[in-house]
Design a protein around this nucleic acid. Structure first.
Lengths: 221, 221
DNA sequence: CGTCGGTTTGAATATACTCAAAGCCCGTGG
DNA sequence: CCACGGGCTTTGAGTATATTCAAACCGACG
């Protein structure tokens, strides 16, 4: 839990005291886009998808949250409305803090604020990179990047290769990489036929990691 | 200067003590992408363009910096390398702080860290929105959004309408909206013929603000 | 007056989208 | 245990949108 790194045991006890625990089943909406932002969350177990939709309903996936990461935190410090919605991918466990408690904690233990700056900084850099990619690269490269990021975040090493260990539809991959589910299907099918990846039951396994990296970097296929 | 908002006069004096002043002519590179990040900057006067380039040279404009904003700050708190380059658009004045001084200030006056969280949070939300736009909207709408954002940030109200008061090439607009300079040229020419905007000498003036907003929102033209 | 950076415009083309339809897999309920 | 239904995926055909490349143009500035 990066946010609370470097805190004293006492401070940690303090933060845990005012945390609330949530046990959530798969496909549960934790908050809606536009909701008044009341709580900040930390994922303990499972997976969460954060998506943003525009006025006419087009959605994009902002990110996937893996255990150990925070979500819904930024809104507390900006306009107090969640700018996106959060939905569990699988059965999950999360902790949450109220706005008041979180502010209190941050002023009492400034280290938390500093940690948060680092976290937000890294997320900012990641979105900026994704922005550059979508602005300049072919769909194929973007899809490769998307899978690599997911593998980095939630990759389980199996006998077959690296498995991304939460359920992933073509639609979600499309919404991550700024394309359509049809194009994703065509490309993943091609990769699967070539043996670089395996997909089954909404799980994707990268069999030839370095090959996917080559696609991401050179656009070679 | 949002970063130092809410500080006591003493604290402010402290921060100014360790600031360095830079007077820069137009088109000066302040730092390169990949440079070891040594200093955080605040723009006092002028304008700065932050662009990121990929391995094969494709560039995008991450943002334009207007007076009162910080830049080059995030890198100090992440991997210590600037993730983008900064170039002045016009003659400019900036302040800067060393990494050591900035850390020192932030621990002495935690309010600075909290302010920074707010700043980064808002920037994060903006990039995420731009990401959604580029992922889901037509080029025309994206260009409209780009101009509106610039007008918001650096709009001067003139007799003709709202003028974006720094120099802006077709190329830069293209790099903001994820398209080519040719497409930007075609679209801006069309808008100009219709009378929604005026461009001259790398300055863009929005004559019919609400019309441009309609394009941004509906894609109607 | 010439040059250089930026802009416009045309024609040809590619890339990825749209829409439609069929197929597959999985879990459910009979 | 098998059949059914629903969600997800695949695939094809046709097409739009925006890109690419080439060339001419414009205008500011030395």
């Amino acid at each position: 839990m990066e946010l609370f790194q470097g805190l004293s045991p006492v401070a940690l006890a303090d933060t845990m005291l005012c945390a609330r625990t949530h046990e959530l089943r798969a496909e549960t909406r934790i908050f809606y886009q536009g909701d008044r932002a009341g709580r900040a969350y930390a994922l303990i177990e499972g997976g969460v998808r954060i998506s943003q939709s525009g006025s006419d309903g087009e959605q994009v996936v902002i990110r996937f949250v893996a255990p150990g990461e925070m979500f819904g935190t930024v809104a507390l410090f900006t306009d107090r409305r969640y700018p996106a919605e959060a939905v569990t991918l699988t059965q999950s466990v999360a902790l949450s803090w109220s706005e008041a408690d979180m502010s209190e904690l941050m002023t009492r233990y400034p280290r938390i604020a500093i940690n948060l700056v680092g976290i937000l900084g890294r997320r900012l850099q990641e979105v900026q990179e994704r922005f550059r990619e979508i602005a300049t690269q072919s769909v194929e490269r973007r899809i490769a990047h998307a899978l690599l990021r997911l593998a980095e975040k939630a990759g389980e090493s199996t006998g077959q290769g690296t498995e991304i260990d939460f359920p992933l539809t073509r639609k979600h991959v499309a919404e991550m990489s700024g394309t359509t589910l049809y194009t994703v299907s065509r490309i993943l099918t091609r990769w699967e036929k070539s043996g670089w990846i395996v997909t089954s039951n909404q799980r994707v396994t990268l069999r030839d990691f370095s090959r996917v990296m080559r696609i991401a970097e050179d656009g070679v296929d």
